[in-house]
Design a protein around this nucleic acid. Sequence first.
DNA 1: GGAAGTCAAGTCTCG
DNA 2: CGAGACTTGACTTCC
Length: 293
Amino acid sequence: MRLGYACMNTTLGTKSRTCRLANATPERVAELARENLADARRMAQWNAEHGIGLLRLTSGMVPFGGLPVSGDWREALAEDFAATGDVFRETGMRVSTHPGQYVVLNSPKAHVVEAAIKDLEYHADFLEAMGVNGDMVIHLGGAYGEKEAALDRFVETALALPEKVRRRLVLENDDVTWNAVEVLEAARRTRLPMVFDPFHDSILASGSLTPHQALARALATWPEDRIPKIHYSDQAPGKVEGTHADLVDAEAFHAFRSLARGLRDFDVMVEAKHKELAVLPLLAALQEARAEA
DNA sequence: GGAAGTCAAGTCTCG
DNA sequence: CGAGACTTGACTTCC
């Protein structure tokens, strides 16, 4: 079991640099992307030194990378991306992306779906440029008051996506619309693997499946030669339900691990506001448990 | 230099 | 009907 965090490292003070669309030029975008890539390499090195094996990459790696205004960054930054991919390989880092809320593959609006596909291709392109098979984790989208049709649309669109996107795409249960049972159904029909998020599951229950059953089935969606992954987070006290906490409770995490005993090995992406600071205590407990075993 | 306002995009819920 | 939640606050303007 490897652990990781999303996009930025508070200890290193890394950032995701961007600019306003109005100010974007190919030169400016390339400059920002180079700095973002340098931060990604710093995080990978830091992670390796601290026993962290997962890193989610910011979708803002290339600002407006899915739009023409970003220019031909695939060519201009080929070497920078390749060098960054080398660092990921050297450090054994499993990288991923989580394309944002605007990627809605099942929208009834054609232009929304088109933009979503463009954005997924952008993510796939930069992973390709790094020479890595990073996961691209997405949600199913909206319900539009007609869930069955919305799911049908998702499946149809997902099946037709370019191969470079499909081989990286992973589906996740969310906390407002698509529960674990529904995402398992989508995973089966699209032949894509699923990331199980127990925090979302605790808010939007799967109904017919216990968390343990949902976890087991989600792990089973991954082919033998790929290590499954889950997301893990806690509720922020006093905030709107679904808001990620600064850290995660180590004891609850330990209990969750017990729940997973006997299942196949998987990695854990920790989603917490304090990023790597939430991972380190879990890692310490994990190493302790391993030493005892 | 710091505070406030703004930023590509979609969808949903809450107050 | 606006704000806030989600990938991740960061950039720009104004004082």
